[in-house]
Design a protein around this nucleic acid. Structure first.
Lengths: 209, 209
DNA sequence: AGAAAACGGTATCAAAAGTTACATAACTCA
DNA sequence: TGAGTTATGTAACTTTTGATACCGTTTTCT
């Protein structure tokens, strides 16, 4: 890919042209396939990824259960990597591409350098910390206070809104993973929703009504 | 209190003398009593607090249940306030002093100004975001994956370690609040721990063995 | 001292969620 | 086409947690 093309794909948030030039000079452009693992638990991070296109799912895993933390979408970066960039640490989460994605990666040492030189980079970092924190707080509140059926319905509605379609393409098993529960529980609750007329169930997808 | 005394109490992390001078010039020193509320849910924040002495408990509340997010201790600031300082927002948490405390507060506009001018202030902010994020992530993992008895035991052990004493002075009711459950549940589990010889129960405190 | 509040113990019941097991339908692919 | 895989449905059961109620003891406050 040409450098000018990469430039065009960089989030518009980076206003300083000197910064954009540095990003192109030092960054490395990589593409990943669906289900490729970008970051795994325990991995030492010496790079910071910014998603150009596609989506990375960031989650935690304990034994055979996992739970969704958040998604990294276009123009965003991974909180765990950013964190590790400041204080050399290993990741406590997994990052897996949910679709074919293009990612721009930088050596972590630049994260600090740029912060002092470029205010738009600094704003990007603060914005990232802040929004990831809010997201996590939201998840926390939800797990701490809300019963699973409510969380499940919220998840479905969010999906439908995000995709702008009432057809939610996901298996019960994967829904269970997202919410940190089990397949049987999800099937049971969904069947309840169907009887209440809230959804219609099909193999491989759910129609929100 | 004399300004020189305040200076002496500022966290050593603020290395630039110009910054320390600005903090004294623009900051306001306040003292609060135990159980005083510093921040409440829905409150608009136009100040950033740094705890000089004492401790602030930050928690969430829904109806009559609450759950601990973290403590703000000496030299630390409140994540929610910091967050609000960047993006004018209201707090979604409560902050209550657990003991008589001294707090230094600044107008939020300075938070941004200082970040560009003083690198030690910037490092302080990043460190704050980062450590609060990690704490919240820890709480999240715990709530998502661990049964209450395990969380309770962890809480007791952390307390004992922090205070360097096996005598944990807290009521069952307050333990329940910290963990987001109810008094009866805590009493039941603690009694179980006692029968297993893990603790010894007294009125008003718990002896960890 | 006497009342009120705080603290803790415990029994009983209900609800939520997880576990195990088994069955059927649909899809995939050699 | 037929075997293997994936997706879903559902029953029965257990465990965990929460809700309610009532008790006696200790502390606090007037």
């Amino acid at each position: 890919m040409e450098k000018t093309d990469i430039l065009a794909k960089l989030p518009g948030a980076f206003t300083e042209s000197a910064l954009r030039q540095e990003m192109i000079t030092h960054g490395k452009f990589i593409t990943v396939n669906k289900d490729d693992t970008i970051v795994r638990e325990g991995q030492f991070l010496d790079f910071l990824p910014i998603v150009i296109t596609g989506e990375i799912r960031v989650f935690q895993q304990k034994e055979d259960r996992e739970i969704l933390l958040y998604y990294v979408r276009e123009g965003q970066t991974c909180m765990m990597s950013l964190s590790a960039a400041y204080f050399s640490q290993t990741s406590t989460s997994y990052g897996v591409a949910t679709k074919p994605s293009e990612i721009f990666v930088f050596p972590t040492r630049l994260v600090n350098e740029w912060q002092l030189k470029y205010s738009s980079w600094n704003a990007f970092l603060i914005q990232t910390f802040r929004s990831r924190y809010d997201e996590l707080l939201g998840s926390f509140e939800s797990v701490a206070f809300d019963p699973i059926d409510k969380r499940l319905l919220t998840y479905l509605k969010n999906w439908a809104q995000k995709e702008n379609s009432p057809k939610i393409v996901i298996s019960h098993q994967n829904l269970a993973y997202e919410l940190g529960t089990t397949r049987v529980v999800v099937s049971r609750i969904l069947k309840g929703f169907e009887q209440q007329g809230k959804v219609k169930l099909f193999r491989g997808y759910i129609q929100l009504k």
